[in-house]
């Protein structure tokens, strides 16, 4: 598992990267009540706003963690946004294909992320 400074987790599954938000992020957001997902087959650039996530408190974006193509989205979250709070590691948002998986090496590992959130 790898982590971004935007509080996303990334898990490699075969040749795709699965992306969700961390338990820390879910806790900070509060109860999630709305999720808007990108269209599959969308080309994205790192930093693009790809998902909207609204909690009882506020709206936030999920940014594309890497350059690549969105290949799948988790429609379950649209029906049941609360899954993001109940099981942040299970509640993936999208899967993306990237040209070179080695870009993940630059991201934080679990210990580094734990230090990052203090």
């Amino acid at each position: 598992m790898k982590y971004t400074k935007e509080h996303e987790w990334l898990r490699v599954d075969g040749d795709v990267v699965v992306v969700g938000i961390t338990a820390h992020a879910a806790e900070q957001l509060g109860d999630v009540v709305f999720v808007e997902l990108p269209e599959p087959e969308t080309q994205v650039v790192e930093g693009d706003e790809v998902c909207v996530i609204e909690s009882v408190k506020a709206a936030s974006d999920i940014l594309a963690p890497l350059d690549g193509e969105i290949v799948a989205v988790n429609e379950k979250l649209v029906k049941a946004p609360g899954l993001v709070n109940e099981d942040p590691l299970g509640a993936w948002f999208f899967k993306m294909k990237v040209e070179d998986l080695s870009v993940l090496d630059d991201l934080m590992d679990e210990d580094e992320y734990a230090d990052f959130i203090g």
């Binding site: 509060g30 009540v33 009882v56 408190k57």
Partner: peptide, 12 residues
């Protein structure tokens, strides 16, 4: 206090 551990939804 904006919320307690229960969270806004449960508190409401």
């Amino acid at each position: 206090p904006v919320q307690y551990p229960a969270g806004v939804m449960k508190e409401h």
